[in-house]
Computed example of a mutant assay.
Amino acid sequence: MTKPTSPSSAAVLPATSIVQIQYFLYFAVMGLTLPYFNLYLSHIQLDGIEIGILSGIRSGLMMVAPLTWSLIADRLKARRMVYILLNVGATLVWTGYFLTTQFPWLVVIGLLHGFLFTPIIAFLEAFSLDTLGKDKNRYGLNRLWGSVAFILVVVGCGRLFDRIGVTSILVLVLAGCGLQLAFSFWMPKDTPSKPSPDLGLPEGLRSRGAVVFLLCVFLMIASHGGYYGFISIHLEALGFDKTFTGICWAVASICEIGVMANSRRIFSRFRLKTVLMVSLCIAALRWIALSVFTTAVPILISQALHAFTYAAFHMAGILTIDRFASDRFKTFAQALNNSIGYGMGLTAGFLVSGWFYERFGYVRMFQLGALLAMCGAVVLLKWGRIPEE
């Protein structure tokens, strides 16, 4: 498979470099919203339940939006054009956050923005695998640029928000979305695809192996609900400042970069199922640690486990769902993986974790996450079947 390029991108940078820039910009925005947007919501006097609802909306739309837009893109063979339109819409809708702090209107803005922003990563994953051709084990070398951006943003903005306040997050996210929109016009052209007689949608993505895998993805990402939704608030309640919060997120990203940089070596040596299993077990250990320790050093050590619970699991998941899909459904496959995990799984995780945090506190919340991760490990061990490459 040759690397697809558009006339504009070919004259400026290789297709792989354009994809890496997009990862950088996308996760720069995520480095703002994931650790700090809930702090902004707390700053404008929303309670835990309202924050959980808004977080759940953003992830909940991944159950519908990526599948909808990916089907449109695959059917029209217009992945690049749809990707550009999503970036345009998401950037425009974000400006609504400047106009109100009222919870009902924040729900409306969250719904619109989520419907346009949440599909972007699934499209980007499909672009990334296309540019790699047959050497898909190098996926981590593309994806690690997102982690680099995440580190720079969470550390820099932790200090920045301590000085000028967390409300400046709105301007910074808008700037990041604007840059991502600008570079989206240089994304590579769509790769022509033909229907496959072997692994079409019914036989591949609806197979028992795919269903079991997606259930494990659901459980793993749901176990992260308390972490993604409330770790920054939890650290603040323990007395840590925003700089330490940024350092915690940065430590996690630094460790995940090490795994991603060695993606070819890891997946040449270990089976995908093995990587998924180890990651699920380590996730359970990580959440137990956060339920027990409240001092800086153990918390930072637990953050290093992000290399397994996110980086290794994520890369293995991207490669696994790709094996279940025919060429015709590559974009849809990545959208399905994101919808089940970061849509259904994270929505359930956010909502249940928000309730547990308010009702029982952080200890029970993280213990619930550990239980979900272990359930995923048991399901994968007993019923998991992944096609050979």
Rank of each mutant, 00 (worst) to 15 (best):
K3C: 12
P4H: 08
T5M: 11
T5F: 12
S8Q: 15
S17K: 10
V19K: 01
Q20C: 10
Q22T: 07
T33C: 11
T33Y: 12
T33L: 14
I57F: 09
M62Q: 12
M63K: 09
T68I: 13
W69I: 04
I72K: 03
N87L: 12
T91D: 04
W94Q: 03
T95V: 13
F98Q: 00
F103A: 10
G110F: 06
L111N: 13
L112K: 06
L112N: 06
F115D: 05
T118V: 15
I120P: 02
A122M: 10
E125V: 14
D130K: 08
T131M: 06
K134R: 10
L141Y: 12
N142E: 07
L144T: 02
F150W: 09
V154F: 04
G158Q: 01
G158P: 01
G158E: 01
R159G: 03
F161M: 05
G165L: 05
V173R: 00
L174M: 10
A175F: 13
C177T: 06
L179Q: 10
D190P: 05
T191S: 09
S193V: 15
K194P: 07
P195G: 05
L201Y: 08
E203L: 08
V212D: 05
M220Y: 11
I233N: 13
G239Y: 12
I247G: 01
V259I: 15
M260H: 02
R271P: 08
R286F: 09
V292S: 11
S302T: 12
T309H: 07
D327F: 12
T331E: 08
A335K: 02
Y342V: 02
G343K: 05
L351N: 07
G354W: 02
Y357T: 01
E358F: 08
F366A: 00
L371A: 06
L371G: 03
L371W: 07
L372P: 00
G376C: 05
A377Y: 05
V378T: 03
L380S: 04
L380T: 03
W383E: 03
W383S: 02
G384K: 05
